[in-house]
Design a protein around this nucleic acid. Structure first.
Lengths: 181, 181
DNA sequence: AGCGTCATGTAAGCGGTTACATGATTAA
DNA sequence: TTAATCATGTAACCGCTTACATGACGCT
């Protein structure tokens, strides 16, 4: 019932991966949208294997290295993922960002100290924006020329573009906050 | 260490409230930015009272109704809140929105079905946007004419304005998704 | 008669974070 | 020599969600 398992399936629907790969993809590539710890990945993969949503494609063994267990999605897994994707949903407590809460308290603190924090936050979001822009540059040439809506790259780009717009809005908001001090 | 307690203190820094009030403020007023359950509010208030961050201002008793315990923030609580607010922080896994994950899977599903979900999501965000706009209209006349950065209303407006921009971006993004189908 | 509001709280469970454990290799 | 990378996993903890419990009033 957790959406975490669907995040794993989302990656496996595109290519076979090991638990380690999945962790890396989420923490580095798909960036800070979704993160996982190994504690979640490995047990969840085992569980899903038991339910037939995922199966072992093979095990790579490089002499000295630990065995690398490659998983692939099954037909049942694909269908479960599609089902979940088209399932109706309600939007929940959207943004639970500590910095928003701090901004809510900005009237309590000295403007000078607040300004430092705003500048720091802005910088971090600028870095994230830059990373997302790089990501788009990296993905765009891989797009199918046909421009089909069934191209996974197109879906990836849509999500990253959300991230870009989000970071831009955050940066603008920081500027506005700053000017109000 | 949880930021939840600072959310409670943030409200109490503005006015004395009961546990019930706090819950209502978070779930209705400050809207879907932050939500709490009673299970968290009441034990946390007790704990904070024990730590001297908050104290009982009095207990209202309306014959038939349950006793209403009004809490106010202490000087120590105020200082703890200010400390937390000006503390440096790093930004974490920002947006963990199920719908983004679903968009990431949109290449797997029929455009027709996806279109329905996008339209639904867009509508929900439009409703939220309308609620935020109302909130700003309600807050703006309460602003101090001086326009001081120490006015809590100004801080409230900043936060709601973030929400407005966020909802606008989300709506635009839904439109873009739709046009790509 | 039944549901919603006010007002306090408790109990159970799960999901996610942080840390730990192993063990060989390669780079600073 | 210390740290990081690859690769799997386990253990402990904590915060949050959902549900339950009480009890009188007021509205439909």
């Amino acid at each position: 019932m957790s959406s975490m398992r669907y995040a794993l399936l989302s990656l496996l629907a595109r290519e076979p991966l090991s638990g380690y790969d999945i962790k890396q993809h989420m923490n580095n590539r798909l960036g800070p949208f979704w993160k996982v710890g190994s504690n979640q990945v490995y047990p969840e993969l085992s569980k899903m294997e038991g339910e037939g949503l995922v199966k072992l494609q093979g095990v790579e063994q490089h002499t000295y290295r630990p065995a690398r267990k490659l998983y692939e999605i099954t037909e049942a897994g694909r269908e479960a993922l599609i089902q979940w994707t088209i399932e109706p949903m309600e939007l929940e407590h959207s943004v639970r960002d500590d910095f928003l809460l701090k901004a809510y308290n900005s009237w309590l603190v000295e403007p000078g100290q607040m300004a430092v924090r705003i500048a720091e936050m802005k910088k971090q979001h600028e870095e994230r924006l830059a990373a997302y822009l790089d990501k788009v540059k990296e993905l765009t040439p891989l797009l199918e020329t046909s421009g089909s809506s069934h191209d996974p790259i197109a879906s990836s780009i849509s999500v990253v573009e959300f991230g870009i717009q989000y970071e831009r809005l955050y940066i603008e908001w920081c500027d506005k906050l700053m000017s109000k001090l």
